[in-house]
Simulated scan of single mutants.
Amino acid sequence: MTGATSPTMQNRCHSCLKETTRDFCPACTKRLFGVKKFNATLDFSLPEIKSNKGSIRRISISGAQPKFSLMVNEGRLEPTENGGTFILKPAVEGLFDNTKDMPANEHLTMQMARQIFKIDAADNALVYLKDGTPAYITKRFDVLPDGNRICQEDFAQVAGLTPGEKGSNYKYDFSYQQIADLMKQYVSTYPTDVEKYFRLILFNYLVCNGDAHVKNFSIYSPNADGVYKLTPAYDLLNTSLHVQELGRTALELFSENSATDDSRDDSGADFETEFFKVNGFYGKPDFMELARRIGIKEIRAERFIAETCSHLREMNAMIDRSYLSEPSKALFKAQVRDRAKALEMR
């Protein structure tokens, strides 16, 4: 693929962040793009995407961040209105803190999930538009090689949550326990998938993802047999690098609308642990209580929390290898240390 030379750190793969002599290591090049060599700098800029054939359809809008559909054609990524197999998310200027770091942030966080925490997460990479603007790309897991779509629904759809019924805040008008309640109804592999779900909630808390709302968890039927399971994780990033005002979690752990009978205390108020009442934020007792309510054995929940807090050294090393700016690297490390302490508090 032709294009300008990529920015710094060319000795790091723009997907897995491991050392390589090219923009992408051979394994990532083949897995992501199906070719032997791929350049991290694309042949187009964002204005060209917007002006191509009038407009290129946006897949969705998460806050103010646009998403565009891409496909691989003759060894190159190019914008497309139909049959896209990649989603591109460019940096958004001026709306948040550290906006230029948004693509590198999501890329890093997704790679942490895959490599360090062994979470099934969508394939992804960091690339650059022709003008040097960084952008995050992720490979769609709901599109088959023949172009057919896999049946997928996020939990807003499963729950029937819509802006018309719930208002603009509909994505946040739910709880993590309620998502598990729905999983129990629709996911046949619930005993194993609920543990994956719990580990993902812990990971989001550790990396300060305050925007893991109900649309950021989905189920799909990859074999088209009506058997649903959790999709790979997506939209994972440290939101605290960009928006300080977001809460520690996008959703409450528990809520009054949960199907679980004991989700309210005797006064009828939403449930709060004694730890939360004293500290005002979630700690280990809260996540242990969530695990109990969604059917995870205590000994396994203890292990998952301990494992989540055991990877700080590996996380710091990956942060150092990432494409984040130096100030954002330091801030990311400090924020993760703070969350690990919270998860370990009793």
Results as ranks from 00 to 15, higher is better:
Q10K: 15
E245V: 00
E272R: 03
E245A: 00
S322V: 09
N279L: 13
Q185G: 05
S221Q: 04
E272W: 10
T20H: 04
K196A: 13
M71F: 11
P222V: 00
A156N: 03
M71G: 12
A306S: 08
V207D: 12
Q152Y: 10
D154I: 00
E106M: 08
D286G: 05
C13G: 02
V35I: 06
P285Y: 06
M345G: 10
Q185Y: 14
M110P: 05
K118V: 09
Q244S: 12
S328W: 04
K36L: 10
S263T: 06
R248E: 06
L108W: 01
D338A: 07
F332P: 04
P191A: 10
V143L: 00
D286S: 03
F271D: 01
E272G: 01
G83H: 02
T99Q: 07
P47C: 02
G84F: 03
A224R: 12
L129Y: 11
Q111Y: 08
R76N: 13
G268K: 01
L77C: 14
A4K: 12
M110H: 09
T21I: 13
S45V: 01
M318Y: 02
R31A: 15
L32S: 03
M1F: 14
A301S: 03
Y228A: 09
R292N: 14
I201Y: 14
Q157H: 09
Q65V: 06
C25L: 05
Q244N: 14
A250P: 02
L202Q: 08
E81F: 08
K166C: 11
D131N: 03
L17N: 05
R22H: 14
D43P: 05
T21E: 15
E74Y: 10
F276S: 07
S221G: 02
N148I: 09
L202F: 10
Q177I: 08
V158D: 06
A291V: 01
Q178W: 11
T29S: 04
L236N: 04
S310A: 05
T99K: 04
Y220F: 04
A135K: 13
S328E: 14
A104D: 06
T85E: 00
F174D: 02
D120W: 00
R339Q: 14
E106I: 09
D235C: 00
K130M: 05
N52W: 10
S175C: 02
D266K: 11
L206E: 13
M1G: 14
C208Y: 11
T85N: 00
E81Y: 09
V187W: 03
E74M: 14
A104H: 09
L206P: 02
A269Q: 07
A4Q: 13
M183Y: 10
T249L: 12
K329N: 15
S325R: 02
L126I: 14
R31G: 11
G210Y: 09
E48W: 02
N124A: 08
L253G: 00
